[in-house]
Nucleic acid binder design. Structure first.
Length: 743
RNA sequence: GGGCGGGUAGCUCAGCUGGGAGAGCGCCACGCUUACACCGUGGAAGUCACAGGUUCAAGUCCUGUUCCGCCUACCA
């Protein structure tokens, strides 16, 4: 479906405005807004930048109109006193109780203004009395509304004092401040001045101090709309993830103020309101009227203000789908399933889309809102163009690769936290991409003669083949879960862990003999098939994180002529679990690791082929090891491996324990008894530390009585395993000690 | 002032519903073994900010203290 965005958006904006207007949700009114005297436009509360600024707190005495005495007020902006229309105190303030209702004389302009009581006033601050300037302060404006006070504008749109300022007319606001302070002082009204730091609001664009000012603006009566948007989140029609942001959302929505939507700027959607110059009739229409429907006059004047850009942004979920026309795209894709955005525009944009979506479409615009982390610079500061501390993503992509950068963002995106971008981390993932590339090369080299049609019976599959398939199923399940729950760091970590540390570190090494040894053709075929399928699935798992490299490899290696984008995402359910293979490989792998550990710790050259004996009292363990014999011999670099049932004396051997298996590495002639003694001692100490915790738990009757049964059983099993291991290590230590002592 | 988040290995950080302290980088030792030295194998390293409490059990829950960060605000 084709329609131009600009036209569609304009239509939608006008249509929504008209509907709101006719529902009584848009009004024009005099209201105090943040006015930028330089841009000569109102800006929204959210666009004001606050900065602490050093100023003064001037204490000024206003004399009573009748009799003696007076009341002291404090102000940071003495020039605004010209527009004061009251002095307010707290209703509970004993000091001023009898003054409420009386009048004071406003110095310099000699106007009588009343003393009123309003609980906005903080008794503890200053003198406890506040001057009220409705036209120059939002709070004062609100108080004026409550007490029917006159609103007196003393400045024009350029923040220059107007005729209401009497002798100060024509002065700029800051020039006027100096004049007023000088005159208050000479008139004896200034009772004190103290330095004071407070926040000054500035225009986000031109950095000019904003001037709260009363002016005629257009507003959306927002409370009814907010009510619906709040309900949508309360009832779960829309979920905010992470949920911690819901509180912030509610806080803001419950205290929302009417939305000032008019802007006095040059660019934007012009407000679709016309006034007939003949009869004064106001016309609100979604298409330009030719003549006044009241008097027929053709002299119509359109409102000059334009709409806040967020007004049209709020319509995005449906205006982009062709609304107000009833298009198929709109019916299909509204509401969308997910909005991904930054929390910094939760209010600007998300909440407003919610309100407008519910108002116009009678349905939430999206089911889930995922608020991602904000990327900060390495000092934790928010990146911004004005600060110049932005990390240029294009530069990062040039240096480390687009996929590496993208994977880094996923890996960093733990929920509820901001991230500090780190080049080291990106580099680490660049290495990961490289690893994948090399694994693909390995696969390509060994799959040249492979065809996916080749069938392999399950009987031909090796333990390694079965094992990697089972591990793949787990990885697929973890990645899927991470993505489903918007835990992208968990998802990316699961993929990373599987591909590097299981597929590359173990599986590729395990099958090398089958691939290019003199093994049977069946073993080779099975390894090839499993390799092909595992790499294929891995690429698909990784594709959401690293689209470019996976597509490239997919095309050259898997090559079914279609993009990896339209391939099926691996499903854990489709891959059979294989606990037996996982358990058996775990033992084989541990034995290999134990042998390597001895090699490393005893400083035996990696090139030296070793003789190893494995003893176990468990028949099952021995048969597993027999099945894994080839893997052990190859990956531990052995020249001989014997498996025996009885734990015979192993002279001149270094010892380790892998589950129910005693590992003896023969180091005849090269064994360093002192080193072996130290190594065993270290192992035993480690075991003892673990046994300590377990033993303490099992000795505690409360633990046995109150802990879950499964937990207790687990601890008991652990105690047994640790006990066995310790005994075996201690026996080895005693033997080595004897040999060492004997020379 | 209010709200929120955080203080876990040298660094950057994971640790969801309380039950074996983890990863990456860095560091140490050995190794260019025919995918990869952007690599491999092995190793060292933490009073989980502090103090209480709940619990058989606390990095994980509660209270307080402290330090850091972010957001927000109308004490003139």
């Amino acid at each position: 479906e084709r329609f131009t965005m600009d036209e569609g958006l304009s239509m939608a904006v006008r249509e929504v405005f008209v509907r709101l207007y006719h529902d009584g949700l848009i009004y024009q009114g005099d209201y105090i807004v943040n006015w930028c005297p330089r841009c000569r436009t109102a800006i929204s509360d959210l666009e004001v930048e606050y900065q602490p600024q050093q100023g003064n707190l001037w204490n000024v005495r206003y004399p009573m109109a009748e009799g003696d005495g007076g009341i002291v007020v404090a102000t940071t902006r003495p020039e605004t006193m010209l527009g004061d229309t009251a002095v307010a105190v707290h209703p509970d303030d004993e000091r001023y109780r009898e003054l409420v209702g009386k009048e004071v004389i406003l110095p310099l302009v000699h106007r009588r203004i009343p003393i009123i009581a309003d609980d906005y006033v903080t008794m503890e601050f200053g003198s406890g009395a506040v001057k009220i300037t409705p036209a120059s302060d939002p709070n004062d404006f609100a108080i004026a509304g409550r007490h029917n006070l006159p609103i007196l504008r003393i400045m024009d749109d350029n923040a220059v004092i107007n005729e209401n300022g009497g002798p100060y007319a024509g002065q700029d606001r800051y020039e006027c401040r100096r004049s007023v302070v000088r005159d208050l002082e000479s008139g004896g009204f200034l009772v004190g001045t103290e330095p004071y730091t407070h926040n000054i609001g500035r225009c986000y664009r031109c950095k000019t101090d904003i001037e709260p000012a009363v002016s005629r603006q257009w507003f959306v009566r927002i409370a009814p709309l907010a009510k619906e948007a709040i309900a949508a989140v309360v009832t779960g029609k829309t979920r905010i993830v992470p949920a911690s942001w819901e509180a912030t959302y509610f806080e803001w929505m419950n205290n929302i103020r009417d939305w000032c939507i008019s802007r006095q700027i040059w660019w934007g959607h012009r407000i679709p309101v016309w006034t007939c110059e003949g009869c004064g009739k106001v016309i609100v229409a979604s298409t330009d009227p030719d003549a006044c429907p009241g008097c027929g006059g053709a002299k119509l004047r359109q409102e000059e203000d334009v709409l806040d850009t967020w007004f049209s942004s709020a319509l995005w979920p449906f205006s982009t789908l062709g609304w107000p026309e009833d298009r198929e795209a709109l019916r299909t894709f509204y509401p969308t399933s997910l909005l991904v955005t930054g929390f910094d525009i939760l209010f600007f944009w998300v909440a407003r889309m919610m309100m407008m979506g519910l108002y116009v479409m009678k349905e939430v615009p999206f089911r889930d809102v995922y608020l991602h982390a904000l990327v900060r610079d390495e000092n934790g500061e928010k990146m911004s163009k004005s600060k110049g501390n932005s990390i240029d993503p294009l530069e990062m992509m040039d240096r480390f690769g687009t996929d590496a950068f993208r994977f880094t963002l996923a890996a960093f995106s733990a929920q509820g936290r901001d991230v500090r971008m780190s080049e080291e981390r990106i580099e680490g993932y660049k290495f990961f991409i490289n690893k994948i590339w090399n694994a693909a090369r390995f696969s390509q080299m060994n799959l040249a003669d492979y065809s996916p049609e080749i069938s392999v019976s399950s009987a031909e599959e090796s333990i390694a083949d079965r094992w990697i398939r089972a591990r793949l199923a787990r990885a697929a399940s973890e990645v899927t879960r991470g993505l489903d729950e918007y835990r992208f760091n968990d998802a990316s970590a699961a993929a990373y862990q599987f591909v590097w540390h299981e597929l590359c570190d173990w599986y590729l090494e395990l099958i090398k003999p089958a691939l290019y040894g003199e093994k049977k053709a069946t073993a080779r075929r099975s390894a090839q098939k499993t390799l092909f399928e595992t790499v294929s699935a891995s690429l698909r798992l990784l594709h959401p994180f690293i689209p470019f490299v996976t597509e490239e490899i997919w095309q050259s290696l898997i090559a079914d002529g279609r993009s990896i984008m339209v391939s099926e995402f691996p499903s854990a359910e489709a891959i059979p679990t294989d606990l037996a293979a996982e358990r058996e490989m775990a033992l084989v792998m541990e034995v290999i690791t134990r042998i390597r550990n001895i090699r490393g710790e005893m400083n035996v050259a990696p090139s030296l082929k070793l003789k190893v004996a494995l003893d176990s009292a468990e028949e099952g363990a021995l048969s597993t090891l027999e099945k894994g014999r080839g893997y052990i011999e190859n990956l531990a670099n052995l020249e001989a491996l014997s498996l025996t049932r009885e734990g015979a004396e192993r002279k001149g051997a270094a010892t380790a324990v892998a589950g129910p298996v005693r590992v003896s590495v023969f180091l005849a002639g090269v064994i360093d008894f002192a080193a072996e003694k130290a190594r065993l001692g270290k192992e035993i100490a480690k075991i003892e530390k673990e046994m300590g915790g377990v033993g303490k738990k099992l000795a505690n009757p409360d633990f046995l009585a109150k802990a879950a049964e499964a937990v207790v059983r687990k601890e008991q099993e652990k105690a047994r395993l640790f006990g066995d291991k310790k005994a075996a290590l201690e026996a080895a230590l005693a033997r080595v000690a004897a040999l060492a002592d004997g020379g």
